[in-house]
């Protein structure tokens, strides 16, 4: 039997959970809600993270546009995704939700603007 201690990061409660695997059967304990269940299993099989960063904007005052991955990317790819983000330069205006990078590095995840700057 395999066992992992996982702290849930889905919400600010931060439940301390135990994930166990026996005969391909994953069990989670210590979670206070259903989302912890999903997170616990995912964290030990295929951990992913939402990335937030900025991209360069060609504007004297608004020099950076905040962006976010819409959905989580594999944790191991965080620095590669950052490299892609660091290549971009934008012109204003940009609206919240505008696509900045589609399907980043084949993850199926889009990177979008997280605010509006007109």
């Amino acid at each position: 039997m395999k066992e992992w201690d996982v702290v849930c990061i889905v919400c600010p409660k931060g439940c301390r959970m135990k994930v166990t695997e026996e005969n391909n059967d994953m069990k989670v304990s210590g979670n206070q809600c259903k989302r912890g269940l999903t997170y616990g299993v995912k964290e030990v099989t295929n951990p992913t993270r939402v990335i937030t960063s900025t991209v360069k904007v060609n504007h004297p005052i608004h020099r950076r546009m905040p962006v976010v991955t819409k959905g989580a990317v594999p944790k191991g790819m965080m620095l590669d995704v950052m490299k892609e983000i660091n290549l971009i330069e934008l012109e204003l205006p940009i609206m919240v939700g505008d696509m900045i990078i589609g399907d980043v590095l084949g993850t199926g995840i889009n990177i979008v603007a997280s605010r509006t700057i007109k």
Partner: peptide
């Protein structure tokens, strides 16, 4: 506007937003 990380809005909008998205 400078809290560009996520983790906002779970109570208010039942979804996870970044700071600027929440403000927007």
């Amino acid at each position: 506007q400078q809290c560009i990380h996520n983790g906002f809005g779970l109570h208010e909008f039942k979804e996870e937003l970044t700071g600027p998205e929440y403000a927007q």
